[in-house]
Design a protein around this nucleic acid. Structure first.
Lengths: 382, 382
DNA sequence: ACGCATTCCGGAAGCGTTTCCGGATGCTTT
DNA sequence: AAAGCATCCGGAAACGCTTCCGGAATGCGT
């Protein structure tokens, strides 16, 4: 294996100093066009790639981005990461993975962030579903660390990207109302997530507009996971017949699966006896029986917009150098600090929509199963 | 924000040289017990964390591990990453994420690996489902880069961890045979994955032992994704009645979902008309209708074993220094180069097992839905 | 022909660690 | 008591890059 070549080797081959090679690599303007090309040619020839570590040490900054993920089986993470990678591929940044689970959070909330901070390894942080960690993140951001949060936060301090949870829930419940339902239950997500609140607000708003007073007995707390949906459904099914809901809006598809299971055990038909709508549009939702009506989150686009935002922040904090990797992504556009991406109601069979429309969505879900969502992310800056 | 403290600050506070502090950090034996403790105390007080970049530069090695992932919505990735993180958390290593998609592979297979190699960023590589990249990886390994492959490879050259795909498939098909099925179809996975071959071999072996000659019409090629399962099912259902299978063994749960959809459209009952068994035990499989009988892959444990293996390789390549982070994980055990983890048949309703057993698994699937698989990974070294 | 601004480039000092080499100290051995 | 050995520690040179500073060369106006 040939020894790895350094910037010095390249400099000697090109007949210049290592300083000049460095300038070429970093796209500094003060290099003659000819020498620049000569250096670039030699770099390409030798397959030279500068050492990230050395560059980071010398420059005091580096090309690593931390991604903070909950250690959680969250089906939409896959798409998110796809979106992030696709953008990052075009830059010279690499992704460093940091994970945390509930245990970490309860044991020592600070430790995770401190660790991030202390290693000084990453130039910025992309935090996905930080939940209870939000406070620490805003603190970090205020200290000058570029941080972007995806889809979840209590304090609105770091720049963030999220789905329009309020409108999604609102539309979902409106759909149920249009189908004639009046007693609509809601299985909420956990309190520490803003998404839970927004979805609940959407639910309440739709009811209010229809002149329906919310019924406390029909509002239950889940934790986004399937067993909690099962338990909540049990509670609802145990209500006396006249108090029982005719429709359930579950704040997450996972919880809707639990409802499906509970209904199955009771021989309740969905949507015959009870209509059901979920939220998230997890991949399996098209395949459960009956196919689940749900609200689609644009995870792929959320990942893309999140990393774009972070790259913009990084470019900013590097000064007004207009020719870096990061800024070229946004091409001079002034970057928004908040991006809300639209959600979309996916009507399948579980809500009891008419036969033909259900059949149509089955066919559609199939044809789109392996291709990307094609609608462009219409982002709105606040 | 207090300025970040360096090894020099610590050294001065402790009244020693930076060299000694470095020795303490790296657990070198040649430090007096008292000074060691004094230094450690001060490090803890100041919350000092050494710079990974500087250490990497100076030491010529570093504490970063690359994880190579297909950019693919693969449900078991989540558990894998959980397993990996859990082990890594106990060390001073960080994870760098590298992703690739089919497009990358076909465009320039070498580019991905070259990039990895060239940045010299990571000390080792954990490759998950590398598929067509296997060749490049074995080459890397032969060049001395520590590489561990998880669950997939054509050449058996790098150390690897995988599930016992052969036995899993064998048991699944045996189960169908026990239920009286004689015409059992198989929807294969893509050819470039060894797992596909192993599962197919298990299928053939079970048939052979039952004295059944494989029928070419019943063996179809899918690509692990749901639409391909749908298409293969269509083909099977279009066969003349006497040639049609009475059971289908799909090489992946995703493809089984496609079969479910096709059956629904034809008003075929599963398991009434056709029994169905999948492979992987993806999370949704317990929730589809009917719940899918499938073969469980111990993804969490595969992640754990994979990273253990890699850490062992790293410890080895660092020389026989017995006191590093990495080797402390394995505690002197000689590390195997190949780990095969057992799979497990999960019997649910889709295979047409008796009513009570199906009910039992529903209840069970619920209770285990949020807790870890509790069986210890009984690994066998080859 | 001169001064001056501009453009391009090299020298060299770091960045925060690790590690080699050798020195000092204390203890054992002959 | 001298020699030998182990143990513990400090000095200083790397590692590969960035960046500040200043110098040479060029172009321009006068």
């Amino acid at each position: 294996m040939a020894k790895k070549s350094t910037i010095l080797d390249i400099a000697q081959l090109a007949g210049v100093s290592p300083a000049t090679v460095s300038r070429v690599i970093n796209r500094r303007p003060d290099v003659d066009k000819q020498t620049r090309e000569r250096v670039l040619r030699i770099i390409a020839e030798k397959g030279y790639v500068p050492s990230i570590t050395a560059a980071g040490l010398a420059g005091g900054r580096n090309r690593l981005i931390g991604m903070l993920l909950p250690l959680f089986t969250w089906p939409i993470l896959a798409d998110l990461v796809r979106g992030i990678s696709e953008i990052l591929k075009q830059t010279s940044y690499e992704l460093v993975l940091y994970t945390f689970d509930d245990e970490d959070v309860t044991r020592d909330r600070r430790a995770i962030i401190n660790h991030l901070l202390a290693t000084q390894l990453t130039a910025g942080l992309l935090a996905v579903f930080p939940g209870q960690l939000s406070d620490q993140l805003t603190e970090l951001y205020q200290q000058g660390v570029p941080v972007v949060t995806i889809d979840d936060q209590q304090e609105h301090v770091t720049p963030w990207v999220r789905a329009d949870n309020f409108t999604g829930a609102y539309e979902a419940v409106r759909h149920l109302l249009r189908l004639g339902h009046r007693r609509i239950a809601h299985i909420q997500g956990p309190q520490e997530y803003l998404a839970s609140h927004d979805r609940h607000r959407g639910y309440l708003q739709a009811l209010r507009e229809a002149g329906i007073a919310p019924d406390e007995n029909l509002i239950l707390k889940g934790n986004f996971l399937s067993p909690s949906g099962y338990e909540c459904a049990q509670r609802l099914f145990n209500l006396p017949a006249e108090k029982r809901p005719s429709a359930i809006f579950a704040s997450a598809d996972q919880m809707a699966y639990g409802v499906l299971l509970a209904a199955e055990e009771r021989n309740l038909s969905i949507p015959g006896d009870i209509a059901l709508v979920g939220f998230d549009d997890d991949a399996p939702s098209a395949h459960v029986r009956p196919p689940l009506t749900t609200v689609h989150q644009p995870s792929f686009e959320m990942g893309q917009e999140g990393i774009r935002l972070l790259l913009a922040l990084l470019a900013e904090s590097e000064g007004s150098d207009a020719s870096t990797d990061a800024s070229s992504i946004r091409q001079g556009r002034v970057s928004p600090l908040r991006v809300v991406l639209p959600t979309r109601l996916i009507i399948r069979a579980s809500c009891g929509a008419s036969e033909q429309s259900a059949a149509a969505t089955i066919a559609q879900s199939l044809s789109t199963a392996s291709s990307d969502v094609s609608s462009p992310p219409t982002s709105s800056a606040l």
